[in-house]
Design a protein around this nucleic acid. Structure first.
Lengths: 337, 337
DNA sequence: TTATAAAATGCAAACGATTGCCCCTTAAGG
DNA sequence: CCTTAAGGGGCAATCGTTTGCATTTTATAA
């Protein structure tokens, strides 16, 4: 691997000059001749600056970290795609880490990434603890939360209108005549989930439906979790006639459980899924879903972080709430039973 | 951020001693007292070594690059998950880049990653060109190809038995009485696709089926590509009665096109998809698929690369072919028309 | 021409770690 | 009590850049 020195030697100039040519592309303070000589040398030696050395010297690495709980989930996979793209466009590299909803792993990842000298961090936290996040905050380190949020302290964040969308979903089901509505929510430690539950409960009250604890199931976020929660719900004396389901994978698990019980959607039971993805519409019954503006979330996330990285004084927090989209398909219908 | 020097100062020792304590965990050549003093200082200052500086000094960064064409594709998303996990376990960090099947982007990513000082690279190449890969090879840089391969030169690689699995798929369809079999393949520049086509054609010959060029469609790998290819196939005079379909997203697109035409699967048309994923079994008609051992592919990929990174002399290539699994569900049935 | 300002380039000290080499302890043996 | 060797720890160079400052070169004007 050629270094600055090698290039300098070949072009018969001082390394610092090479560095200048390579950085201040249009600085007039360098002769066209020398510039050309240097550029040729760079070409000839296939010189590529050592980012490690640059990072060390400049105190920034042009890299950002992204920690997500699960990449099997299309929601996060899409987010990775969009954020990676933004990063690349801006000359940053993305370090992706996956917590697998494991708090310990997340903390390790944060430490690891920090040690790697990332300039900023985007995080969808597990939310079992938050000291490590407070630490980031007190260090004034540029970071933002995505999809999830802590209500006990302020940070930069991009989230969606969970409460409102849950409310509207229930509202729609009520309009269809449902009055026994269940909610398979995912882990209630998570802000996103809690907010949806709040919206759900608010709607129950608003429309005078019974607030039946048995109708609310919160466990993990996997396929299996959705599957089991649904089985439990169906095993009740008077099971719900409609279901709100949080999360892509949970939804598929629930779907499987419903089909296995021989239930017809929406004749026997209606379902609404939080999170839309490419397959929502190709299941045997296309799903009525609450869809997230992923493109917008990803782009704004990067923008916000980028802005935060490049500002000297960080003395404010920005919390962006994006609006979801209610997409009506065929998994919701009038109550029949 | 505390540095080695800070720790050294606090512990009243020389920085080099701190470094030694932190690296040679069980070297006896350091008094327990000093060790403790140092460890305490580390604790107190929350010292975290600067990986950039280490990387610069040591000439390796404990990071590896991964370039994939598309993370929306569950095949690659799962791969990322598994490889990231292996990396983390081994103390490496993963730099994920996405080429989006764009050759130029891939080349940029390779250069970028190399400049970042990655110790190794895992690459699912776009395969429109390969000079950049030959360059890696001639530099003796540790890398391997995954899922895709170049037949014109040797490299380390992990691929699957594409030819064989395509052959078997046709064989199965023939057994069901089909004799007009189509293949929506994806871009034939790609090794994986070409191999599947070869297996497909070999089977056609073996079973005396007509080798109809009109039955073979290769375009992009997106949902839309699958959708359009299928429409084209169905517009033929005598369309096929069975379809082999390459790729997760293509399959969904094809699926949509079939449903839109009002065709019943498998009564009107049978389909077999390359690549299984969590939803293959939850479409209205669960798909008969060729499933990849992703866990194995990912793990062996990391192992192979790791091995390659840690070996002085690299004078051999390892090409691992993993076996796929044929999973029969409900999208294949006897020919009726 | 020569003085002088401006432009072009060189110099050297960092950034934060690692590591070969050397020196100073300390304790054991004579 | 002195010698000696091994163990413990300090010194300083180095990795490949960047950048403020010093120095040389060139161009301009007197």
């Amino acid at each position: 691997m050629a270094t600055l020195k090698d290039v300098a030697k070949l072009a018969k100039v001082h390394p610092s000059t090479v560095s200048r040519v390579l950085r201040d592309i249009d600085s007039l303070s360098i002769t066209t001749k020398t510039r050309e000589r240097i550029l040729n040398a760079v070409e000839e030696l296939k010189y590529r600056p050592d980012q490690m050395a640059r990072a060390l010297k400049m105190g920034k690495s042009f890299s950002i970290g992204l920690i997500i709980p699960d990449i099997s989930n299309p929601f996060f996979a899409e987010l990775v795609k969009i954020i990676e793209n933004e990063c690349t466009k801006a000359g940053f590299i993305l370090l992706v880490s996956i917590s697998n909803e494991d708090q310990e792993k997340e903390i390790q990842h944060v430490n690891n990434l920090l040690g790697r000298g990332i300039d900023g961090l985007i995080l969808a936290p597990v939310q079992n603890s938050y000291n490590h996040i407070l630490e980031l905050k007190s260090k004034n380190f540029p970071f933002l939360l995505i999809d999830r949020y802590f209500e006990t302290f302020e940070t930069n964040a991009i989230i969606s209108d969970n409460e409102e969308s849950a409310f509207k979903a229930v509202q729609y089901l009520v309009k269809l005549g449902h009055n026994r509505i269940g909610f398979i929510s995912g882990r209630p430690e998570i802000y996103t989930i809690r907010k949806r539950l709040e919206g759900f409960k608010k709607a129950l009250k608003e429309f005078n439906l019974e607030d039946n604890k048995e109708f609310m199931w919160g466990a993990g976020h996997t396929f299996q979790d959705g599957y089991e929660a649904t089985q439990n719900l169906l095993a009740l004396n008077k099971p719900p006639t409609a279901l709100l389901i949080s999360g892509n994978l949970i939804t598929l698990g629930a779907y499987k459980a419903l089909l296995e019980k021989g239930l017809h959607i929406p004749n026997d039971i209606s379902i609404i899924a939080f999170s839309d993805n490419v397959i929502s519409q190709y299941l045997s019954t296309p799903l009525t879903t609450i869809s997230h503006p992923l493109e917008e979330m990803g782009k704004r996330a990067f923008q916000l972080l980028f802005q935060n990285i490049n500002t000297e004084v960080r003395n404010s927090y920005t919390k962006i709430t994006v609006c979801t989209n209610f997409i009506i398909r065929e998994s919701t219908g009038k109550r029949t039973s």
